[in-house]
Amino acid sequence: MIEVKHITKTYGKKDSVFVALSDISFVIPDGASVAILGKSGSGKSTLMHTMSGLDHPETGEVIIDGQNILALSQKEIDKFRSHKMSFIFQSFFVQAKETCYDNVSLPLEIAGVAPSRRRSKIEAALTAVELIDKKKSKARTLSGGQKQRLAVARAIVNSPQILFADEPTGNLDSVTGAVVEDLLFNYNKQNKITLIVVTHDPDLANRCDIQIHIKDGKIESIEGLK
């Protein structure tokens, strides 16, 4: 369960203060798929960064499994992210000069997984996104859709508890985008992990269990919560 309590995030100094997030609170049950919806600049990415402990809001708490992650030390929050969270970005951020295998290996290395236990995990993840035959290819040789599938493999390889996806289909055409969406939702259902998707695409949002609508840094409405 993720509890977000009274998050406020501002940018700028005194006379030119800009409130990016204003008193945001909601609760997400384990294994849910959540869409954070809103126009560009409404604060969706900022909210996602806050929930993952990358960003530090002025006030508020993010309680995951009873623990306020915003109160953790840098070392502890890094460890938390490497073991329990993963990310997919609009611009993929795969390492073009590295092989697909090495790209997927990175989160395991960061989490300190022993080399002997990596191979099977990496191959399973690449198989799940149907890129196992590209294992030894450099990531720059992949198409856009393949790059995002590689990013999905990298995101699922260490069996995260929460998967954040920031506009995962924003740079893809509808056909390749649908493939990536299917991968994410199947993974969410089969492994009962929490999937948090930032998007402004209503069709993608409607596939989620919960929709949180953001406008100008405030919650406009939350749909789907029982």
Binding site: S52, L54, Q74, D78, R81, F87, F93, L106, P107
Partner: peptide, 16 residues
Amino acid sequence: TQQIGLMKALGMRRRD
């Protein structure tokens, strides 16, 4: 910078 940012997002420590 993007590679470094990604590694940090994935939980790689500053020291590393």
